[in-house]
């Protein structure tokens, strides 16, 4: 039995990839297992937990609910893009999560970071309520969210203070 094949071209974290895949491959499986970008995690595979959140053309999406084929031609951003590979410096959002103890087991964290990246690109100074609304689609079983809200607040302040590239590549 030969599965039909599908050609997919995507840009992930500014690198272009072209692969021939089984058409039913989900986007998250493609990222993790085809491209080896395992920072994006899988928590439920039915679009509730948000662990697999990435940015597609600048918008937060759940990569478990999409087929890789649907992302053909898209510009994707995953957690691996956040750390500056030249300097080794963490993104202010990452650093803020460390500084405010915004994680425990860290499994859901990449999803929270990407949702936060999306939020801050659109709203650099969110209120607590706006933070909650933006992160309502991400589940965390460890922290009880309080330290996550503090982390996002701190990240927002730092991103506003410094000139840090956001989700949409703007300064």
């Amino acid at each position: 039995m030969t599965a039909p094949q599908q050609q997919v071209q995507v840009t992930v974290n500014s690198v272009s990839y072209e692969r021939v895949i089984d058409p039913r491959t989900t986007l998250v499986d493609f990222l993790r297992h085809e491209l080896g970008l395992t920072g994006t995690h899988v928590g439920c595979e039915h679009g509730v937990c948000g662990a697999c959140t990435i940015l597609k053309d600048g918008q937060a999406v759940r990569s478990c609910l999409m087929l890789a084929a649907q992302a053909d031609g898209a510009n994707l951003q995953t957690v691996e893009s956040l750390r500056n590979v030249e300097t080794g410096e963490l993104h202010p959002i990452q650093q803020a999560f460390i500084d405010e103890h915004g994680l425990q087991c860290g499994f859901c964290t990449p999803g929270f970071l990407m949702s936060t990246l999306d939020l801050l690109a659109e709203n650099p100074d969110p209120s607590d309520e706006q933070i909650k609304d933006a992160l309502d689609g991400n589940l965390c079983r460890c922290t009880g969210y309080q330290s996550i809200i503090r982390s996002v607040r701190l990240a927002a302040a730092r991103v506003r203070g410094g000139k840090v590239a956001g989700a949409h590549g703007s300064a």
């Binding site: 899988v42 956040l82 963490l90 460390i98 860290g106």
Partner: peptide, 19 residues
């Protein structure tokens, strides 16, 4: 103190089993 576990976790590089 800041947790020594965290840099690997916020960068998605911790070796969870499915990684």
């Amino acid at each position: 103190v800041k947790r020594i576990e965290d840099p690997a976790l916020v960068t998605g590089t911790a070796e969870f089993i499915d990684n």
